[in-house]
Measured scan of single mutants.
Amino acid sequence: VTLFVALYDYEARTEDDLSFHKGEKFQILNSSEGDWWEARSLTTGETGYIPSNYAAPV
């Protein structure tokens, strides 16, 4: 399992994006889409796309 942590807060701009807060942890589901990764929040259980430059490996 690849775990990442949010470096900044992010507010979803589309219904496919995932809103999150700094410090929140994610499981990365798909990182082959370039700058946007499909991720599941370990806090909320929700799935959506996150900007890859807002996350770092745990």
Rank of each mutant, 00 (worst) to 15 (best):
R40C: 08
T47V: 14
I50D: 00
A12D: 01
N30E: 08
N30W: 07
A56E: 11
E15G: 13
A6N: 00
F26T: 00
A12H: 05
G23T: 01
Y54G: 09
T43G: 06
G23R: 01
E33G: 14
G23H: 04
L29A: 05
F4T: 04
I28E: 00
E46R: 15
F26V: 03
K22C: 08
A6E: 02
F26G: 01
S32H: 11
S52M: 09
G23E: 03
G34K: 12
G34N: 12
G23K: 01
A12K: 08
I50M: 05
I28D: 01
A6C: 04
A39K: 00
D9F: 04
S32F: 10
F20S: 01
S31R: 13
T2L: 13
T14H: 15
V5F: 09
L7K: 05
D16W: 15
S32G: 11
T44Y: 02
T44V: 01
R40W: 06
G48W: 03
S41L: 10
V58I: 13
E38F: 15
G45W: 07
Y10T: 01
N30S: 12
K25R: 12
G48E: 00
I50P: 00
L29M: 09
L29Q: 06
D16C: 15
L18G: 01
L7R: 02
T2H: 11
I28K: 03
R13P: 07
Y10L: 02
S31H: 12
G45E: 04
A39Y: 01
S19F: 03
A55V: 15
T14N: 14
K22G: 03
L42N: 04
Q27W: 15
A12E: 03
E15K: 13
D17R: 15
E46C: 14
L3I: 15
V1F: 14
A55K: 02
S19W: 03
S32P: 11
S32Y: 10
D9T: 06
A56L: 08
Y49G: 03
T44S: 10
L29H: 04
N53L: 09
S41W: 01
A39G: 05
G34L: 11
S32A: 12
S52G: 08
T47I: 14
K25W: 14
T2Q: 13
Y54K: 05
W36L: 08
V5E: 11
A12I: 02
E15Y: 09
P57L: 08
A55R: 01
A56V: 14
Y10S: 02
G23S: 02
A6Y: 01
L7Y: 03
S52H: 08
A56K: 10
S52E: 05
R40M: 12
E46A: 12
S31C: 15
S41H: 07
S41A: 06
G34V: 11
F20Y: 01
E15T: 12
G23I: 00
R40T: 12
D17L: 09
Y49R: 15
S41T: 04
L3V: 14
T43H: 11
T14P: 02
N30R: 08
T43F: 09
D9W: 09
W36Q: 07
L29I: 12
V58Q: 08
G48V: 03
I28Y: 02
G45Q: 07
P57E: 07
L29R: 05
L3E: 10
E24L: 03
S19H: 07
E38C: 15
I28N: 00
N30I: 07
S52T: 07
L42C: 14
L18F: 09
I28M: 06
R40L: 12
A6P: 02
R13G: 08
E46Y: 09
R40D: 01
S19V: 03
Q27C: 14
F26L: 12
T47F: 08
D35K: 10
E11N: 09
E38R: 12
E11M: 10
R40S: 05
E38S: 09
Y8D: 07
R40Q: 08
N53K: 12
V5Y: 12
P51I: 03
K25D: 01
H21W: 07
F4Y: 15
L42R: 02
G48P: 00
D35L: 12
E38V: 15
L3S: 08
F26C: 07
F20Q: 00
F4Q: 03
P57R: 06
R13D: 07
S31I: 13
T2P: 13
P57H: 06
T2W: 11
W37Y: 09
T47P: 01
E33S: 14
T47E: 08
R13S: 11
S52L: 06
Y8C: 14
E46I: 11
E38A: 08
T14A: 11
T14S: 14
G23L: 02
T47S: 09
W37M: 09
Y8M: 10
D35Y: 13
E24Q: 08
T43Y: 09
R40H: 07
L29C: 12
Y54I: 07
T14V: 07
H21Q: 12
Y49D: 01
V1A: 12
P57D: 05
G45T: 03
S19N: 06
V58E: 09
